[in-house]
Design a protein around this nucleic acid. Sequence first.
DNA 1: GTGATCATGTAACAAGTTACATGATTCC
DNA 2: GGAATCATGTAACTTGTTACATGATCAC
Lengths: 178, 178
Amino acid sequence: MSLPHAILTALMEKPSSGLELTRRFDRSIGYFWSATHQQIYRELGKLEQAGQIRALEPAQPARGQKKEYEVLPAGREALSAWVARQEDPKQVRDPLLLRMRAAAVVGAPGLDAELRRHLELHRRQLAEYRAIEIRDFPPERDTPGDRLRHLVLRGGIDLENFWIGWITRALEDYPQPT
Amino acid sequence: MSLPHAILTALMEKPSSGLELTRRFDRSIGYFWSATHQQIYRELGKLEQAGQIRALEPAQPARGQKKEYEVLPAGREALSAWVARQEDPKQVRDPLLLRMRAAAVVGAPGLDAELRRHLELHRRQLAEYRAIEIRDFPPERDTPGDRLRHLVLRGGIDLENFWIGWITRALEDYPQPT
DNA sequence: GTGATCATGTAACAAGTTACATGATTCC
DNA sequence: GGAATCATGTAACTTGTTACATGATCAC
């Protein structure tokens, strides 16, 4: 139930076309809710049918033509209701941890190389987040919205730090093939 | 592509029936790869057809009767190949971070209560992991398999600590409705 | 006019969720 | 024999993934 709300949030921040949304789901929003353009177009169709968003620039039925959407009051209400709702943290599903556990029973030749590769990827992601933090959240700006967005970004930063810490420790502890 | 490998790992650790697997996916394995009994039965069927596992206690076709599976050599090989494979970390998809971002545009009455509720849930999960750590990984045991399984558990512990830290900070920073 | 890229979509499939159905066993 | 629970499964649906199709626009 999160994708439609991710799209509504993105459209509230700025009315956009499907492709523009896709690009934003490769950056900002996508850092904590990823989606492909196929998912986005499908969901835009559903949201439009449900009367939560509507296309601007009236009625362009043509295929290859840009179509911008904006959020209607019903969409805003649906989003508010979702934010206020109780929803338990979903259970963890992480392939790397799972592979580690599998390695405990079938052996793990080369898994340390994979760990180093992941470590590098997480370091890069962290550097990207830090750059965004410096660029978008200078100390002087401090509206409530900025503070919340900054909190979210720090969530991303902390998550990358978790992975870097865990993988580093794993590599130190890694059972050496003696 | 992870569920079949999660099941193969569980069956390598100990041959089991579908219901026993379901219970283990509510505990140990489930702490980093959750699955419902419907998913498990469906996947067991596929794995059996693919010749990666087989039912013990020959040929019980009856509906309500227990059916134990064990891993065949082909299944073990498939699992080894999967452990050795390169697979990028999947992109984050977290509803709580997303709701925070939505709150930045539509407002967030009551979101702090939800944060406190999540904080409590994560504290409980952390306590459970710590209890398991003390019970299952006393300092004297130190086979390679144990070390890997312990690493995985510490991953769970670190993840809970990340959440506890982040939510605590969020509550401190939370924009007060003044 | 043709090739790149912008832009919207379809189709088929895989994975995960929710609700329900049904037989076997055990305890009273 | 009735209730609880053990145990396996079906069906319908939603969400996410992968591969492909097609039209519009712009640079050359």
